[in-house]
Simulated scan of single mutants.
Amino acid sequence: MTRAWILPILLLVSGSVVAAGPISKGNLGVAAALLLVFVLLAGVNSPLIYPRSISALEARRRSAVDGRPVVFWRPGCTYCLRLRVRLGRGARHVHWVNIWRDPAGAAAVRAANDGNETVPTVVVAGRTHVNPDPGWVREQ
């Protein structure tokens, strides 16, 4: 759980340090703009922008019932972020599994990727796809 928040926290701390320079020189507008950029970066890299993660077992069970894809992801992954953003509101219709919170999910990803934890790994109808095109996932 804490590993998922390391990057956002580092971005917030870095933003505070960077904004301290302009604040000490009296440039409050520049400091506020810099801090806002770092806060937005922290928000985008936080687990908060992803739909609620479920366990790999529950995701596979639900996928078997409704036929929706299962996406294995981890916080801080730029490719996962790209997929999430490109799916837009459709991301709610996909079953998300955070491999840092679910050991079974991490094991499933390693089994599909020759021992590597390459994400996003998407499972559609029992077939595994590594870092697929977001448009293709949206169609599924």
Rank of each mutant, 00 (worst) to 15 (best):
112 A>Q: 02
120 P>L: 08
127 R>Q: 11
106 A>C: 12
127 R>Y: 07
107 A>P: 05
101 R>A: 14
94 V>I: 07
115 G>V: 15
105 G>L: 06
126 G>M: 09
113 N>P: 05
96 W>M: 10
122 V>Y: 07
98 N>R: 01
122 V>S: 06
115 G>Y: 13
91 A>P: 04
114 D>V: 09
123 V>D: 06
106 A>Y: 09
113 N>M: 12
104 A>I: 02
96 W>V: 06
92 R>M: 13
120 P>D: 06
129 H>C: 07
99 I>R: 02
116 N>F: 05
97 V>G: 06
107 A>R: 13
94 V>H: 03
96 W>R: 03
108 A>T: 05
104 A>C: 01
126 G>N: 12
119 V>E: 00
98 N>Y: 01
118 T>I: 11
109 V>M: 04
112 A>G: 01
113 N>C: 15
106 A>K: 14
104 A>S: 04
111 A>M: 09
94 V>D: 00
108 A>R: 07
127 R>N: 10
129 H>A: 10
112 A>T: 06
91 A>T: 11
94 V>Y: 03
101 R>D: 13
110 R>C: 08
120 P>A: 10
109 V>K: 00
111 A>S: 12
110 R>H: 07
91 A>I: 11
114 D>C: 13
106 A>Q: 15
95 H>Q: 07
112 A>R: 00
105 G>E: 02
103 P>F: 06
120 P>R: 08
92 R>L: 13
98 N>C: 04
111 A>D: 14
102 D>P: 03
92 R>I: 12
114 D>N: 14
101 R>E: 15
100 W>K: 03
115 G>M: 14
107 A>G: 08
99 I>H: 02
97 V>T: 12
128 T>V: 15
92 R>A: 14
122 V>G: 00
98 N>I: 02
111 A>V: 07
99 I>P: 01
106 A>E: 11
91 A>D: 11
98 N>W: 00
94 V>F: 00
101 R>V: 11
91 A>M: 09
107 A>K: 10
105 G>I: 01
114 D>S: 14
96 W>L: 05
124 V>Y: 05
108 A>L: 09
103 P>Q: 08
110 R>N: 06
94 V>K: 02
97 V>R: 02
101 R>S: 13
101 R>Q: 15
99 I>L: 06
128 T>F: 15
124 V>K: 03
107 A>W: 13
126 G>K: 08
107 A>Y: 11
106 A>D: 08
112 A>Y: 01
123 V>K: 04
97 V>A: 05
110 R>L: 09
93 H>C: 09
91 A>H: 06
116 N>E: 11
113 N>Y: 08
115 G>E: 14
104 A>L: 04
128 T>R: 15
116 N>Q: 11
117 E>M: 14
109 V>N: 00
121 T>W: 09
125 A>E: 14
128 T>M: 15
102 D>G: 03
97 V>L: 03
109 V>D: 00
125 A>G: 13
120 P>T: 07
104 A>G: 01
127 R>F: 08
117 E>L: 13
122 V>P: 04
106 A>T: 07
95 H>D: 04
99 I>N: 03
124 V>N: 01
117 E>K: 09
101 R>T: 10
119 V>K: 00
96 W>F: 07
92 R>Y: 14
104 A>E: 05
123 V>F: 15
